[in-house]
Design a protein around this nucleic acid. Sequence first.
RNA 1: GCCCUCAUCGUCUAUCGGUUAGGACAGGAGAUUCUCAAUCUUCAAAGCGGGGUUCGAUUCCCCGUGGGGGCACCA
Length: 464
Amino acid sequence: MSQVRVRFAPSPTGFFHIGSARTALFNWLYARHTGGVFILRIEDTDKERNSDEFLRLIYDSMRWLGLDWDEGPNPDGPGDRGAFGPYRQSQRADIYQAHLKKLLEAGRAYEKDGAIWFKLLGERYEVFDEHRKKTVTKVKSPPVVIDDQIRGKVERMEDEDFVIFRSDGNPVFHFVNVVDDITMKVTHIIRGEDHLSNTSKHVRLYEGLGAKCPVFAHIPLILKSPEMGQGKMSKRDKGALIEEYQQRDFLPSALVNYLALLGWNGGDDREKMPLAEIVKLFDLPGVNQSNAKFDVKKLAHMNMAYLLELPADKFEQLARDYLAKQKVTAALATEAAYFRDVMQLSQPKIKAIDELPAYTAYFWSDDYPVDDKARAKAVGKGDPKSRLGELIAAMTTADFSSDGAIEETIKHLATAQTLGFGDYQAVARIAVTGTNTGPSITSIFRVLGRERTLARLKRFLASL
RNA sequence: GCCCUCAUCGUCUAUCGGUUAGGACAGGAGAUUCUCAAUCUUCAAAGCGGGGUUCGAUUCCCCGUGGGGGCACCA
């Protein structure tokens, strides 16, 4: 069998969202699985709504997700890669004209009301359409049968001629889509189920143009999560844009893994899988038929799982970039070793990189926010003044070289006062971090060092 | 309104006629522990309804119901 050629064909008329990303991913996975070709085609025939900004966003999002294309526009400059270009519809006008000419000559297209219509084969009759409140011309023809790789056989009646060139001279989606797929030799069309009803038109166009139909595979749609409401996920929904996850520095590998699982499974219970494994297992029969609701929580969990196993130096770099982006300059100004220590404490504790600025604030400056509720709670029980006093005394001479040493010192102190470690931990934590959450108090002491730890403990004691 | 499509825990899903209906996220409880996470153990949680077919249906068929999509000189 000849090589698989699939395409992802977005139009730069809006933000790049989760649904588009998943369609792109499934096409990419199928190409990689079969050793085929993945084509990126830009459907920018709608001049009114196109923008370069959105085009840029498509390139950026695709590259961020790691969905590299074998053929398509060159995102970094003019020109294309691939032998079947150009890959932007706005540059293919002559190709559409040539195909239109073919249809015209074959008597399969005609002009009416300034537009050009595709002519279906069969006996014509007039009927009044109640819903549209007008008389329409119908054509008697056998139903179109689509043999869909995911849906099975789908029958649909296509019984009205339809416009292929608007009166302004521009071709419509159905026409350019089919012409491009023919001329780019696309073998498998993997796209959202929202196109299933259009497919009968496309099949007729293939026939009209004397081309063989590709294999169709209509994948289920991604719906809003229950919190978002009802219906198909749209660009307006919160959490629907790829850009958002990119800005929050989610790990693309986690997002890709999550997206792959939305409507597909590899046949067993495994969910978290390396991309290579997904590529190996991915196939069209493994794709579900029912729509899936997007679950932000599960995505967050996936991201955490990937974050946890990230090599420390990668995490550190990611953190540095994010903190720079968020203009947390105090963090970037710290010594490399100190920065690394803080990151080592943070990596196992946070779920996403964007928690980092708040999670680590007290490491960068002595002027950090204090959680009043946590403060009241920590100070409200026992004898915080005495505990702080004892702690200051003990820490003045303590060994700060390891967590264990600090822990020993505090435990020793606690035993001497017939108290527990916790009696010191709570008040120490609020004193040096301003919060009641975070890494272990011993490691916070160690990383902050004796000077800062003592200064903060004293400052807090004085405020009581 | 017409056409297409889908239907298992709250959510994502496994099961390809015979299972104590499994896993994951979220939720509850517990363990661990210096807090919070993580981790481990554990609990609760599902076959939309009605007809068939069959010795036997979550699984196959039909009818409802419900969800989703499409019906443009948008893509």
